[in-house]
């Protein structure tokens, strides 16, 4: 501190603002992790005791509040199939929309801005509204008209079923896939597009052969997010396909189905003996978590495989 120009590094100063914000951000992180840890421990600890092979592999009787005879096989099948069917619909539609928005649509045009705004608004619609939309559009409009056109004596398409529940969920998760795909497409270097076009490739060839393969891991991330969001949703399927009870497994896409999330709701609100139902409730929640995790794991595995391939070859 003697000469005015020399800087003394030795006196470490206490900076209150910096300390405060470091602490605050750390605390927020710890809080989130703590909440997650509490939920997971509670569910795993309590659910594990009831979970058995019999539980996940049997079809329950109408009295599914009895912990000794009940099972969740129809619910596992129902939830898994509605999520898988949804993915089959939402990925292509979402990817094609995103390709249009990023690669074809003129960036500043009115139409593009309206589509973007629509996608963003779609993401903000409450899920129960999607359920009502599914009932009104898919079942009462598409389904009933389809039945009329096919001269079906009884309602086949014009009733709640796996396909309509899946499509309703697909509409709900569309924004997630579109936004994720758009981000993935934007991350593909412009230089790769130019290189392909400069070799005389058409825009379509460039997108199919160069852009989409590069964006695939990002697209799958969108798929993973959509699966996670849809697996636990109950509201959109309330009117569009879920059943309170079914004595047998669904056979067709036009069948109704039982669902893990909805079953959790049923168990917690319809039981007359709470003490007896609680262990089943915990086990059902645990199965739902495990199923969501497993579905994600499949997508994550595909994505990792793709990344590895891209790094090593082609």
């Amino acid at each position: 501190m003697s000469a005015p120009n020399s800087i003394d590094f030795r006196t470490k100063q206490f900076r209150a603002g910096s300390f405060f914000f470091t602490g605050l951000t750390g605390l927020a992180t710890v809080l989130i992790l703590a909440i997650l840890a509490i939920i997971l421990t509670d569910v795993i600890f309590n659910g594990w005791r009831t979970l058995s092979w019999h539980f996940v592999s049997s079809i329950p009787t109408k009295d599914f509040f009895d912990r000794h005879t009940t099972g969740v096989l129809p619910m596992i099948i129902g939830t898994a199939s509605r999520v898988i069917v949804m993915t089959v619909f939402v990925l292509p539609v979402g990817v094609i929309t995103a390709v249009y928005l990023t690669e074809y649509a003129p960036n500043s045009s009115m139409v593009t801005r309206i589509i973007r705004a629509a996608v963003n608004n779609l993401a903000g619609v409450p899920s129960i509204v999607f359920g009502l939309f599914g009932l009104g559009f898919f079942i009462n409009f598409v389904g009933k008209n389809l039945d009329a056109a096919l001269h079906n004596p009884t309602a086949v398409w014009g009733q709640p079923s796996i396909i309509w529940a899946s499509l309703t969920l697909a509409v709900m998760t569309l924004p997630v896939v579109i936004v994720a795909t758009e981000e993935a497409l934007k991350a593909v270097p412009q230089g790769l597009r130019e290189a392909s076009l400069a070799l005389g490739a058409t825009k379509l060839k460039t997108i199919i052969k160069i852009v989409l393969p590069q964006a695939m891991p990002g697209i799958l991330t969108g798929g993973i997010l959509a699966v996670s969001r849809a697996a636990g949703e109950v509201a959109p399927i309330l009117f569009t396909g879920v059943a309170y009870y079914m004595g047998s497994l669904p056979q067709h896409l036009t069948d109704r189905f039982m669902d893990l999330g909805y079953h959790v709701f049923v168990l917690s609100t319809q039981s007359t003996n709470i003490e007896q139902t609680e262990p089943i409730l915990y086990a059902t929640v645990l199965v739902l978590l495990l199923l969501t995790f497993a579905l994600n794991l499949v997508a994550i595995f595909i994505r990792a495989n793709m990344r590895r391939k891209m790094r090593s070859l082609h």
């Binding site: 270097p189 230089g191 790769l192 130019e194 290189a195 392909s196 400069a198 160069i210 891209m310």
Partner: peptide, 8 residues
Amino acid sequence: FQKSNPFP
């Protein structure tokens, strides 16, 4: 191009 841009 200026920046080499081989395909992956």
